[in-house]
Design a protein around this nucleic acid. Sequence first.
DNA 1: ATTAATTCGCAAATGTCTTGCATATTGTAT
DNA 2: ATACAATATGCAAGACATTTGCGAATTAAT
Lengths: 141, 141
Amino acid sequence: MNSDLTLSSLRDKGHKITNVRKEVVGMFSQADKPLTAQELHKALKTIGLSVNKTTVYRELQFLTDQGYLVEVHLNPKETSYESTDLMHHHHLICETCGKIDNVTNCLAKELEEDVLKKKGFEIARRSLEFYGTCADCSKKS
Amino acid sequence: MNSDLTLSSLRDKGHKITNVRKEVVGMFSQADKPLTAQELHKALKTIGLSVNKTTVYRELQFLTDQGYLVEVHLNPKETSYESTDLMHHHHLICETCGKIDNVTNCLAKELEEDVLKKKGFEIARRSLEFYGTCADCSKKS
DNA sequence: ATTAATTCGCAAATGTCTTGCATATTGTAT
DNA sequence: ATACAATATGCAAGACATTTGCGAATTAAT
């Protein structure tokens, strides 16, 4: 399990630092929510780095293979990614405004132990999402 | 939130009972894991009901709109569906053999209360998946 | 049996994501 | 600085799930 999504970490492992890689890494470090290929592609264009979508896909594939990112399946249309560093948190997805908040509380310890004991299932990673209505949207309605 | 995925329930609400609907409902009642459009399409063909994929998609859409099914995003390639009746359980997805097991233990009560209290987020539904290695695959390796 | 509403099949299209291949770029050794 | 090997990039083409329009077929109730 590879954490530490930084340029120096990548360099240390002998990976090349390209413009795209530099920016994508930066975006994931700052991101407070999972990002999709489309979002990254648009963001890159915005900062004047017009890169091909294929390259974005390959970069995501690369960072995922290297263990820096994990896939998150929040919606059926496209795959989102987030830094492995953030893996032990959960998402609050507002179905009204689409906002994504995080819960860092790492629960489920008991349940996980149960699962291993009763089922013999070894958990490598988990995905916990809550779908509902955020505070702001609740107020408005 | 509509439960009770049965033909009588559908009839009572004035929906037509077609051959496809009948079989699809039956398959979801018996299913012990989430099903995809492709799986249903193949299963229907197997029992001699060669139906168009579009129809399968529309049937899933229909049953979801009516609240009988929920979408489950287990993998990036396609959407799975399961009966709303089963919503309060979680999935164990073996990344080696692909088998999907269930945990009916409904945890997360505490965390959910936390989330409502601290964030004001009202949870409508949740999705909890554990990815790892099932007992059988553990043994083999 | 007639009819209105719904469903179905077919064809076409959308959008995400993948792949092959030729070219360009990066890091390193010289 | 230069040349080389490995890797990254762009472009075109394609795979696949999913959606939509429309005319034909089926369902349920009169």
